[in-house]
Design a protein around this nucleic acid. Structure first.
Lengths: 130, 130
DNA sequence: TACATAATGTTATATTATAACAATAACTTT
DNA sequence: AAAGTTATTGTTATAATATAACATTATGTA
């Protein structure tokens, strides 16, 4: 009854590439880099990306249309993501803060709406660029 | 020495449209709706959108590529935005919570990085869709 | 007036993402 | 193993989102 834990061929190829990249990758950058492995069409990339996001193996940086591997406690927080983005060098880091995720996970707005998921992107200057 | 407070012709047209829309608008929806006013090209729309975002008159909902007018204390929080998004009906609301913005504005990650800007998107089900 | 800056108009093109359909592989129940 | 089901793949075409480059006009300022 379990969801499949293993990755399919295309998913594995694309995950490996993202996972070993020091920076978030864009879909067409990924496509270019996996063409030698037989993945030829955008849709093949986007399908794998969709599944990987669903599984929590990777996250999408919405403001950059780029994908980064999850390094946050084995991806158990796929539904509660926070990133820091340096506006100069574009260094992007996933934030793991128990306090932050606790605060946001339990946040209720004034309509009493409670949320099942959030994505937070912080912008500023990293150490090096300051 | 003041930045121009008044909107240019195209900016005004596009702001008016977004401001009176009950839901976020996409760039090409905007384009379609302002063609009768003489705005014919995507670039004219994107340029106005860029400026309006810069001024804090509108915000971009990154996960939806859509634009919404700011209704948050005369747009003084253009750099600290939070939205709630219903995943069924796509109703999108800007969240005004002093507590939330205080918490996030003063948030420091473990590198001591402090942020000048953030964008937060919450996902869940609104009252009606629950 | 002259200078500088912001906004506009226009064409072309780049970038990001999905639709539609056919085929194959993997899992499940018998 | 056979039959049914679901996930994945392959492929072509196209939709949706966004920017480059360049010429012109309007606006604000010295």
């Amino acid at each position: 009854m379990n969801k499949m834990q293993t990755l399919s061929k295309n998913q594995q190829i694309i995950f490996d590439l993202i996972d070993k990249s020091p920076e978030p990758l864009k879909a067409y950058t990924i496509l270019f880099n996996v063409q030698k492995k037989g993945i030829k069409a955008p849709l093949q990339v986007y399908r794998a990306l969709d599944k990987l996001v669903e599984m929590g193996k990777i996250h999408k940086i919405e403001s950059r249309n780029a994908f980064i591997a999850c390094h946050n406690s084995s991806c158990q927080v796929a539904k509660a993501t926070a990133f820091s983005i340096c506006e100069i060098c574009e260094k992007i880091t996933e934030i793991s803060s128990a306090g932050l995720s606790k605060y946001l996970t339990s946040f209720k707005d004034k309509d009493g709406m409670k949320y099942s998921k959030y994505n937070l992107e912080f912008f500023g200057l990293c150490k090096k660029c300051r």
